[in-house]
Every structure is written in C-alpha cells, then in structure tokens.
Measured scan of single mutants.
Amino acid sequence: GSLMYASIFGNVSAIIQRLYSGTARYHTQMLRVREFIRFHQIPNPLRQRLEEYFQHAWSYTNGIDMNAVLKGFPECLQADICLHLNRSLLQHCKPFRGATKGCLRALAMKFKTTHAPPGDTLVHAGDLLTALYFISRGSIEILRGDVVVAILGKNDIFGEPLNLYARPGKSNGDVRALTYCDLHKIHRDDLLEVLDMYPEFSDHFWSSLEITFNLRDTNMIPGSPGSTELEGGFSRQRKRKLSFRRRTDKDTEQPGEVSALGPGRAGAGPSSRGRPGGPWGESPSSGPSSPESSEDEGPGRSSSPLRLVPFSSPRPPGEPPGGEPLMEDCEKSSDTCNPLSGAFSGVSNIFSFWGDSRGRQYQELPRCPAPTPSLLNIPLSSPGRRPRGDVESRLDALQRQLNRLETRLSADMATVLQLLQRQMTLVPPAYSAVTTPGPGPTSTSPLLPVSPLPTLTLDSLSQVSQFMACEELPPGAPELPQEGPTRRLSLPGQLGALTSQPLHRHGSDPGS
C-alpha cells in the first residue's frame, strides 16, 4: 500500500510541476520586462504597450523563439521550412505564380514574418522605404497627419515599386495596425538579389506586381527641396563636378596662354591676372594647382613670374625650331616645348642647366612650328573623362623618358669634360720664339709635331656638333674642335714665318 501511495504521489506532483513550468517561465520573463521598464524609466503609455505586446506574443508563440529554433537546422532544411511557412503567400499572390521551385525557395529564405499588435506603428512618415510588405492577416491604416487616407487588409501590398527607383524613397505617411496583424516583408536588397539570379522571372514579377498603396513621397523628385535634403551631399558634389568641367572646357578654348597655377587659371584673360583667384576666387580649394602655386600668395601677385606667355621676339635665322618633346602628345598638341628640351639645344645650356634650372624654367623657349593648343594648358582630366590607368601609364612613360634624357646628358657632359682635359694635357705650358741651342744640326726643328685630335665617332658628340652648327654659343662658352686643319689655341699665330727665318745662335768662333 505504501508503494502504491508513493507512486501516485510522485506522478501527481510531476504533472503539477509540468503544468506550472510554463507559468514560471512566463513570470520570469515578465519580471525581466518590468525590470527593464523600471531601469530605463519608460513612461506609462509606452510601458503599457510593452506589457501588452509581451503578453500577446507569449500567448501567440508560447514563449518560443522561432528564429532561434529555425537557425538550429541546416540551410537546406531551413529553405523547406521557410517554404512551408510562406506557402499561403507564395501560392495566392499573383506576382509569385509561375516561378520555379528554386526561385520560390530563394524568396522564402528572404521573407521575414512580423507580428504587430493593435496601435503599433510599422512605418513612420519620413522613414526610408527599405522593404516591401505583404499583409497575411489583420488590417492596417495609413495616416497623413491625423487623416486616415487608406485601410488595407489581407493580401494587400504596400511599399514602393523598387524597379522604378535606384534609391529608396521616404514614406509619405504613417502605417498603423488596427488589429493583430501578420506581415511578410522582404528587404529591398534581398528581393533585387533574387531577381538578379532569376532574370526570366524578374520581368514577370515586375509586370504582375500591383502595389495597393504606394508609400513613396511624390514630392521626392529631382530638383525638389525634399530631394535635395535626401541627396544633399551627392547633389552638391555633382554640381561641383559639372562646374569644374564647364570651366576646364572654357580653358581649352584659349591656347595662347600657358599658366603654371593649374587648370583653373589657364583660361583667365590678361585683365584677371591681378585678381586673387581668377574664376576660382569664390572657392580657392575647388581646383588643383601645381607646386608653384604656393608662391602666388606673396605680395606682387600681378607681377609674379609664374604666369607664362609666349615671347614675341624673333628667332635667329640659324636657330632650330626646338628640341624633341618629352611626351608623344607634344608633337601634336603643344605650341611651347618643355623646359628640359631647351637644355639640349647647345653645349652652353648643358654647362648651365643644373646651376640655374629654376631660373631657366621661365626663360624664352623655342617654339614648335605648329600653332596647336598648349601642352601645359590642357586641363586636368576628371576620373569620369580619362581612366586612372591611362594617366598612370603616361606618367610612367614620361618618367622613363626623363631617365633616358638624364643618362644621355650625363654621358655627353662626361665626354666633353674628358676631351677638354685631354686638350689641356697635350698642350705645353708655354712657348717662346727663341729656342735653346741643340747639340747638333738636327735641332733646327722649332717644335715637335703635334698629332691632331682623333675624329669623334660617338653619337652623342655628333649631336653636340649638330647643335653647335645651329645654335649661337654665348661669349663665355668653350669652343669644341671642328672639322678641318686643327691648330692649338695656345700656339702663336705666325708659326709659318718662324720656319722661314734663320735661327740666331749665340757662340764663340775658336779662330777669332
């Protein structure tokens, strides 16, 4: 009898404990919600809404976190579960008819179910419309201010047509639940991603989709105040780019002037030289400038040598048109050559190039014969006009050509200096018209024969001689050997007369 009593008592207590286990969990969670309300000092109306929603959600799901349970299964099984949970929507909604099984599984994985109690606001006026909503159960109302403009029910759709707008718009009203509602919502990016994977279904979906109420604000059109608020930074940046392009296009129409201050000032006329910023005076940081632009901040801005204009002085008759350009485009679109090309026009420029290279940067340069637009006047290309890779490749080509020119210049200078040193070592320090008596009659020769300089066969020296023939050397430049009979510069000019005159010897006659 005691054994029977113990078994009955144990079973009854276990049954009672299981009955009250759900209630215990409910009270535990309710205590957490109330502690949250007390800690954050939530006001009474919002506090009442929180408690009511918790009670309804507990009775609806029995305190089970559906998302946590669903995430515990593998992905393939999750797709089947989501397809079952959203079967009513996918079967009865017209846009989803005719979709393949794979497309429906992908869509079912992207849908999220939302449960809303009465009085809950789903979308506020001015919120971004980031999702498309399908009503599965219940009814909602749409308000503009305090005026109800629409009441939607089961199988209705609200949001915005995503295929017509590249960016999400703003809501033009509040969406509030009238009863307990079940909503299926899919985010904008998720829907577009699935439709991109199934393009054959995309056309059918957009053609058959009928949005019951379009929440997009109709005033959000390009150029409206609301649109400016939504895309303020983007609009200002776009206007700045367009104004920069218009100014650079105007600059290219004036090829007669070359400016070292950047493309923003290349198009300024002579009357605007004294102004601080020219056409860019209202925004000094709008356009890029070269490193020399920092010198323009000092006094005497109108007389600054940074602004270059072609000189009108005539060229000498024998002067060549100019050196070879550094870039391939210089032959086609440049009416002034790079300062480095002028360094190779003569030997005198070679000796004085490194010492006063900055001073020569603004000297007169030889002109190319074609009066085409200036290379320095070409505006900086924006990322939309020329690819970045093209600019980098041009810079690399320019750097390689500069290296080759520097190597060639160093070799030419070394060769010229070597020839000058050899000339100085071969010439005796001094010569006299009267020579010392020699031991015999073989001493009648006034000077030792001097062998002429070897013929220069280097390509670089031939180019130097060509430049010497075309360029007029300055007075202080050293002379180079030329073709024809060679003669030492330090010898007297009348050596031929010395050989014809008898030598005057000093000596005593033994017979006297």
Rank of each mutant, 00 (worst) to 15 (best):
G126H: 01
A131I: 03
L132W: 01
L132P: 02
R137P: 03
R137V: 08
R137A: 10
I140F: 01
E141P: 01
G145C: 04
V148P: 08
V148D: 01
A150F: 01
I151T: 11
N155L: 05
N155H: 10
D156S: 05
I157A: 12
E160T: 02
Y165F: 15
K170V: 08
S171H: 01
D174I: 06
V175G: 02
R176P: 02
A177Y: 01
C181G: 03
D182G: 08
D182V: 11
L183R: 02
K185D: 04
K185R: 11
D189P: 03
L192Q: 04
L195C: 08
L195D: 01
L195S: 05
D196K: 13
P199Q: 05
N214G: 02
R216G: 09
M220E: 12
S224M: 12
S227D: 14
T228G: 10
G232L: 10
G232Y: 11
S235N: 09
Q237T: 12
Q237M: 14
R238W: 13
K239C: 10
K241W: 13
F244L: 10
F244M: 12
F244T: 14
R246S: 11
R246Q: 10
K250Q: 10
D251S: 10
T252I: 11
Q254W: 13
P255D: 11
E257N: 12
V258K: 09
A260G: 11
P270A: 07
R273G: 11
S285A: 15
S285E: 15
P288G: 13
S289K: 12
P291N: 04
S293E: 11
R307I: 07
P310H: 03
S312T: 10
P316N: 13
P320Q: 15
G322Y: 01
E328T: 12
D329Q: 03
E331D: 12
S333L: 08
T336M: 06
P339N: 12
A343S: 11
N349C: 03
N349V: 02
F351W: 13
F351N: 12
F353R: 12
G355M: 08
G355I: 08
D356L: 11
D356N: 05
R358H: 06
Q361D: 13
E364S: 14
L365K: 11
P369W: 04
P369S: 09
A370V: 08
P371G: 10
P373S: 08
S374G: 11
L375M: 09
L376W: 11
N377G: 14
I378M: 14
P379N: 05
R385S: 08
R386L: 13
P387E: 13
R388Q: 04
E392L: 14
S393H: 12
R394P: 12
Q401S: 12
L402Y: 04
L402G: 04
N403T: 11
T407P: 04
S410G: 09
S410R: 11
A411F: 04
L417Y: 03
L419D: 04
L419Y: 09
L420P: 04
Q421A: 09
R422M: 05
M424C: 13
V427L: 07
Y431K: 07
V434F: 09
P437V: 13
P439K: 09
P439H: 09
G440V: 13
P441R: 09
S443Y: 13
S443Q: 11
L448T: 08
P449H: 13
V450A: 06
S451D: 09
S451F: 09
S460V: 05
L461R: 10
V464A: 06
F467T: 07
F467K: 11
M468T: 12
C470A: 06
E472A: 11
P474Y: 14
G476T: 08
P478H: 10
L480G: 11
P481I: 10
L491C: 14
Q494K: 14
G496V: 10
G496S: 12
L498W: 06
Q501N: 12
L503S: 10
H506E: 13
H506L: 03
H506A: 11
G507C: 09
S508V: 10
S508T: 05
D509K: 07
